[in-house]
């Protein structure tokens, strides 16, 4: 079965939802000026980010990811972006990361934080805690990347991508979670 790679899909969908605010009518028989308003009205908070992009300052926040193979990758993200946004926007190659696209249905964007950083992170919801219960390699400083948003005070933080079962499988059976 040929399926589009998860990363590409996430990327395209996040873009699509932002785009759909203005370009909803391309193939739309209901095309009128008011369509845009309506869609805006019902889209509500349908982006990955915790805050509307307009509220962000241009001051980027530097984040380092330690990948499953121990490699450290340092990237920049905008305040308000979730760590899942950052992984997608920066095209970081983390297999299976964010499978449910930030909809709190899985725990594949599980990340491990340094203790002092963990304490600074925003509040954790019940739904996130429930999903963390199902995360592989859970630690006391684990959070889901889709629920943690960048702020200036997190500048320079390092997060670790926990090892995953599918990593092991991939080396044994070939790719299971995406192919492109």
């Amino acid at each position: 079965m040929s399926v589009v790679s998860a990363t590409y899909r996430l990327h395209s969908i996040s873009k699509r939802f932002i785009r759909s605010l203005s370009a909803v009518s391309a193939h739309n028989s209901l095309k009128t000026p008011s369509t845009r308003h309506r869609v805006e009205a019902c889209i509500r908070n349908r982006q990955f980010s915790c805050y509307p992009r307009a509220l962000r300052s241009e001051n980027k926040v530097t984040v380092s990811f330690i990948n499953r193979d121990g490699e450290k990758v340092t990237v920049k993200g905008s305040p308000g972006d979730s760590l899942l946004d950052v992984v997608i926007d920066q095209d970081l190659d983390i297999d299976g990361f964010g499978a449910c696209e930030g909809t709190l249905a899985c725990s594949t964007c599980h990340l491990i934080f340094e203790e002092d950083v963990y304490k600074q992170l925003g509040p954790i919801t019940d739904e996130e805690m429930d999903m963390l219960d199902l995360a592989y390699g859970l630690s006391d400083t684990s959070r889901l990347g889709c629920q943690v948003c960048l702020t200036k005070s997190l500048e320079g933080m390092t997060v670790r991508v926990p090892e995953s079962v599918s990593d092991m499988r991939q080396s044994d059976f070939g790719t299971t979670s995406s192919s492109s």
């Binding site: 759909s20 909803v24 193939h27 739309n28 028989s29 209901l30 009128t32 008011s34 369509t35 308003h37 309506r38 869609v39 009205a41 019902c42 889209i43």
Partner: peptide, 20 residues
Amino acid sequence: QLAAGQEVKGGLLTYLLATK
């Protein structure tokens, strides 16, 4: 509503019908 030039607001189904 569209024919009457009104603004259309709605939820899930409206969104699906509008975006196609």
